[in-house]
Design a protein around this nucleic acid. Structure first.
Length: 262
DNA sequence: AAGCGTGTCAACCGCGGCAGT
DNA sequence: GACTGCCGCGGTTGACACGCT
């Protein structure tokens, strides 16, 4: 059975928002908030719009803290770095750019930055071959290299979701990687609406869900297992015991934390 | 001036995830 | 566990602006 539409599209206005609609929505949200329900909001606010459309308009355009246009060189670099690391997870990337929306970042990437990024690095867009000038981390600690890259300022407090299913043998006990530092338990709190479950180093990996969150402490970066082909360009090397176990994730050795979502 | 191509960006669409029942 | 409804996300579209011929 297909999903029912969120509203009757024949009865709601579509297309560009008028200044009056903007004012109505803005005033309503500033006075009442969303009330936890975008679908019913347009009716309450007196707008003949779909709830989704209202949400999008507010989040991408009307919110008071939004920065428009004029991406800085630092922002460019951060977007490139994050895109190279986590791919097109625009909401995650945008969360690292105060005042920027995922839509904004996505548009900026698709229209300008993509060409700039790939052209500057002589990359083939169709391939997953990474350029030589993306951040490199030599051997050593994150602290040693956090500010060493021109394209990475060393402060990336983000988490990323990685699909461990293919490269991580979930039947193995975590304690089978005794020499690796990445099996520490640390509290990341929450990321967006997702909650995380701390694990202990003795917890059996097989008991954990497939969807996982890996994070690096010390504001460092990390990499998803399914992008391992590009990892060597970052100078990442896997812990030897993880390699032996067939675990493809390569990363700097220090204070990497692992968390799993439900 | 007109036509065309390209760039920009707001908005839409459909899906996955999640919570509630 | 199945179903339903909503949210949030990434991909895509389309209107408009602008520059070039």
């Amino acid at each position: 059975m297909g999903r029912a539409p969120c509203c009757d599209k024949s009865k709601v206005k579509r297309g560009p928002w008028s200044p009056e609609e903007d004012t109505t929505l803005k005033n309503y949200l500033q006075n009442h908030g969303t009330g936890g329900n975008w679908i019913s909001l347009p009716t309450k606010a007196g707008l003949n719009r779909c709830g989704k459309s209202c949400r999008l308009r507010w989040l991408n355009y009307l919110r008071p803290d939004i920065k428009r246009g004029g991406f800085t060189e630092e922002e460019d670099n951060l977007i490139c770095t994050l895109y190279g690391t986590i791919g097109s997870r625009w909401s995650v990337i945008a969360s690292q750019l105060p005042g920027r929306t995922d839509n904004d970042v996505k548009n900026y990437w698709n229209t300008k930055l993509k060409k700039k990024f790939f052209a500057a690095n002589n990359m083939n867009l169709a391939s997953r071959e990474f350029p030589a000038s993306v951040p490199k981390f030599e051997s050593g600690t994150p602290q040693d290299h956090g500010t060493s890259s021109s394209c990475f300022d060393g402060t990336l407090p983000y988490l990323m979701d990685v699909s461990l299913g293919q490269s991580f043998d979930q039947q193995k006990q975590i304690s089978q990687f005794p020499h690796s530092n990445f099996l520490e338990v640390n509290d990341f709190g929450t990321c967006g609406s997702k909650s995380f479950t701390n694990i202990s180093s003795s917890q059996e990996a097989s008991s954990l869900p497939t969807s996982s969150i890996l994070g690096l402490e010390n504001n460092y970066t990390l990499w998803s297992g399914d992008e391992s082909g590009a990892l060597t360009d970052y100078g990442f090397e896997p812990p030897a015991d993880a390699l032996l176990a067939g675990y493809e994730l390569k990363m700097p050795r220090q204070s990497l934390s692992i968390k799993f979502t439900n």
